[in-house]
Design a protein around this nucleic acid. Structure first.
Lengths: 148, 148
DNA sequence: GATAAGCCTGTACCTAGGTACCGGATGCAA
DNA sequence: TTGCATCCGGTACCTAGGTACAGGCTTATC
């Protein structure tokens, strides 16, 4: 009988993740500890494949693993305080993403300006006053100016 | 006379960076080893303040420290093969930034769709077929789908 | 029952860009 | 010359998200 669950290697293959990643997610609280065989090997229910796809999707949407863990926990025990659900988190994340888009747009425009101005040496540019590169400041909001 | 150069703490203050960061940049090849006092303390020329501002600017434009180091090196010994100058690098970086903008735009639109569809539980959404979240795939170009 | 494949835990390592701490040496002013 | 601020090198630590390896056990197949 092979109906008793997926072994970790099978799950990893099915979900397209590394075997070590499964144990890492378990440590991080994204996967609950699964049943074990008499000898101690993990046996996952087959829904775990879906769960892993959910995790990867949320990651691609910009959620960190901690945030994904929270979202999954919020879904599991349906306290569902309205400020912890997916709706609220997605709205917050949308604001972050829009901010990053704005930052990157400034960066894109600056790069374009440097290219059309013909800048070819950073140090020389910093010395001349006709260079479009913003050596003084560039979008120093709060301190979240990292591009990535 | 205080005209003999900046001590590391003075430079760090003037440029707004951590003292440790200076030594880190030296290790990374962004700053050349400065002169030393008889006792071994670093003495920086005052242009180094400008250089640090150049580095920070390039970073904000999305260049990694390795790339900044290359750009500075390319500027220093003017081999200036046309494929290593700022022009060429800026064009490459522009392509990267534009790609990131495209990715983030897809992500933003997906988040908006999830919000207006009223999604409130990731696992439930993955089960229903009417959810706009892309559990199957999302912009899996090459593998550069990380948001950040 | 032997043997290979798979899985176990624990720990170390990776990238990127720093930051922090330690014990000891220097620099500078009173 | 004493005393304190500063700086030195070396090493460890941090976030984020994993990946790799070692040494030993389990499971499955012949």
């Amino acid at each position: 009988m092979t109906g008793s669950g997926l072994r970790s290697g099978q799950l990893a293959d099915a979900a397209g993740v590394n075997l070590q990643t499964l144990r890492y997610y378990e440590r991080r609280g994204l996967l609950t500890s699964p049943q074990r065989s008499p000898g101690g090997h993990r046996l996952y229910p087959s829904e775990t494949v879906t769960l892993l796809r959910v995790i990867k999707t949320a990651q691609r949407l910009g959620f960190t693993l901690s945030e994904v863990a929270d979202l999954l926990a919020a879904g599991r025990h349906q306290h569902s305080r309205p400020d912890t659900g997916l709706q609220a988190r997605a709205k917050e994340k949308l604001v972050e993403v829009e901010q990053k888009l704005a930052d990157l747009t400034v960066i894109r425009d600056t790069l374009r300006a440097a290219i059309s101005a013909g800048c070819d040496d950073l140090v020389a540019c910093a010395g001349s006053s006709c260079c479009p590169l913003p050596f003084a400041e560039l979008a120093e909001r709060n301190d979240s100016a990292q591009i990535c």
